[in-house]
Nucleic acid binder design. Sequence first.
DNA 1: GCTTGACTTGGAGTCTACTCCAAGGGCTAT
DNA 2: ATAGCCCTTGGAGTAGACTCCAAGTCAAGC
Lengths: 120, 120
Amino acid sequence: MSRQYSISQIAEQTGLTPDTLRYYEKIGLIPSPGRGAGGSRLYTKEDIGKIHFLLHLKNTEMPLKNIQEYIKAYDAQDEELCYRLLEEHRIRIEAQMAALNETLQIVKYKLDHFQEIKDG
Amino acid sequence: MSRQYSISQIAEQTGLTPDTLRYYEKIGLIPSPGRGAGGSRLYTKEDIGKIHFLLHLKNTEMPLKNIQEYIKAYDAQDEELCYRLLEEHRIRIEAQMAALNETLQIVKYKLDHFQEIKDG
DNA sequence: GCTTGACTTGGAGTCTACTCCAAGGGCTAT
DNA sequence: ATAGCCCTTGGAGTAGACTCCAAGTCAAGC
């Protein structure tokens, strides 16, 4: 039987707080893990994997509601819906990258401009 | 004398609502524009330029507080601070692009995986 | 057997960024 | 001169995502 981890260990691994982990569990973003002595949460490697994928979605500005919908579809093994939701997210990611790049060019231009003022 | 625009025209141009424009003005993100008959706002081309740059920062997840700080530094002609704030934002943009790209690869992999299931 | 420390729950509070509302003013067309 | 519409203000309300708190449980060490 493989190792299991307490909520504070997971918190440290993921950079989330125990409160946030419990909050995500409450709203159905992560599965309710097994419990140890006194009802304390014990996370498995599989749980951790799900949390990491969740963080990938969250870190790319997917709203928790959409992540919730994806998790629900995943649990219901609705591959059609999973596919559609991920595809939509892919499009949003690409749009976001384009916006970031556009602003990056503008910011770089301004930074060069400041540099000139300093040099001149 | 060049053309001026009402708040609803600016709203249409920028995709913001008049309420949001007034809110941005209230918290100091955009300058208070000149007023016309009955105290209604009249935006100049210069105002519009500032709003568009603000939107670039906002669309790249710069918190309004940081934008506020930048605008304040800009108005105070504190070039040193302007430079530092933009440089920090550039770094955040690049980090964000890296995170997006990483997730994009994962999402693409998953999408290909779904595709195989459909094809197979 | 009592303290210490991490854990549990449900619920309330906070922060950011809006979003809406009530009460009222002013231009335009009929 | 009245209807219709867009504008004004200050302030209250909302949504999303946490974040904190009180009261209590449990196991381990002294």
